[in-house]
């Protein structure tokens, strides 16, 4: 029986029969449909996905005319992370002039709005200077990271300590207070960077601290858009599912805990975001066909629900990309093609 080379969600190689690939695809889409209460992929879409997964080429790409825009999180930090000792302004130009990046993001190594606040004037100056020599759109980005507002480093009690003690009300109150601090910091830094000429503000890895984190970002976006109606804002998520660390937080009457991408994007729109970064987690114990079918199912539901462009997060551990620090190009390129051509992503 002919076997197909593919990978597991941890990037290790695995040989599957074509029947096994098809079964993995069906199981993956059904898992997404069940969890998200959304339609599974159609037979035609599964056939197309099967073709992408079973091609013999090492690298695949979208068809001409199907290309999409790429945006970045932690943009200028990535050069540093791979040990290339270049300044951030050089990293921007390397992306613009050598790597064919459609956009770039100026970012600080301590990638959270709370940490940026005391150095916002330095970052603003850097943005102003970078904009003089840059042609491609340049975002400024960081994480809401509401967890940073907890003691001992931050001002509010630590809900991760309170919850195991059964102090639910106190833990909720601490998160509500942290939302106020985070919103204020994000509006302050976002305003500075936009006034410094940023082409957009990126709220990256939103929801990493749960529903309070998501709420703080939504409120900050709304406040920034009221202040600067023309300001482009990208809201990128941390995970596919908003964790209910608080459990009873609402935005415009919608409970945040438990929302999946197709519901998250509607709130992003209401807050005023212009691009939504959908996330679907990769399961490292499952195969690539299982993970990509699941990711495409969630993304398709999200892009169908969205009125704004959806840029799917496709870094390590999300969007069917393996949880591995040098994700293999065979599955990364397959994830790329499938999310764009079947999931109908507007960007990555």
């Amino acid at each position: 029986m002919e076997k197909v080379f593919t990978r597991m969600g941890d990037a290790s190689g695995v040989w599957l029969s074509k029947e096994e690939v098809r079964a993995e695809l069906e199981e993956g889409t059904n898992d997404a449909a069940d969890r998200g209460k959304i339609p599974p992929l159609t037979e035609e879409e599964l056939d197309r996905l099967f073709d992408i997964c079973t091609r013999r080429e090492k690298f695949v790409s979208v068809e001409p005319g199907n290309e999409v825009v790429v945006t970045f999180d932690a943009g200028t930090l990535k050069m540093v992370r791979v040990g290339v000792p270049v300044d951030r302004s050089q990293a921007i130009l390397i992306h613009e002039r050598a790597l064919g990046s459609d956009t770039m993001e100026l970012a600080h190594i301590d990638y959270s709005y709370k940490q940026i606040k005391p150095i916002a004037h330095d970052e603003k100056y850097y943005m102003e200077q970078a904009q003089l020599g840059t042609v491609i759109p340049l975002f400024y980005g960081a994480m809401p990271n509401v967890g940073l507002y907890t003691q001992p480093d931050g001002p509010v009690p630590n809900w991760s300590e309170l919850l195991p003690m059964g102090k639910i009300t106190e833990a909720q109150a601490a998160q509500e207070e942290a939302v106020e601090h985070a919103e204020r910091d994000m509006v302050y830094v976002g305003s500075k960077m936009y006034e410094g000429g940023a082409d957009g503000i990126n709220f990256d890895t939103t929801g990493a601290s749960g529903d309070a984190d998501f709420l703080a970002a939504l409120r900050a976006i709304r406040a920034l858009k009221e202040k600067y109606p023309e300001l482009p804002i990208e809201l990128g998520m941390a995970g596919e599912f908003v964790l209910g660390m608080h459990g009873e937080l609402y935005f415009d009457g919608v409970r945040l805990a438990g929302l999946y991408p197709h519901d998250q994007v509607k709130l992003a729109e209401k807050a005023g975001a212009t691009i939504f970064g959908a996330v679907v987690n990769t399961n490292s114990s499952k195969s690539f066909p299982w993970n990509i079918a699941r990711a495409v199912t969630f993304v398709k539901a999200c892009t169908e629900a969205a009125n704004i462009p959806v840029h799917v997060n496709v870094g390590m551990g999300v969007g069917a990309v393996p949880v591995f620090d040098t994700p293999p190009q065979d599955v990364v390129s397959r994830a790329s093609k499938a999310l764009v051509e079947i999931g109908k992503a507007d960007g990555l």
């Binding site: 690298f59 613009e96 790597l99 990046s101 390129s333």
Partner: peptide, 11 residues
């Protein structure tokens, strides 16, 4: 990899 597989190509 994503930029080559699916990206517009920037400038």
């Amino acid at each position: 990899t994503h930029a080559i597989a699916s990206g517009m190509g920037g400038m």
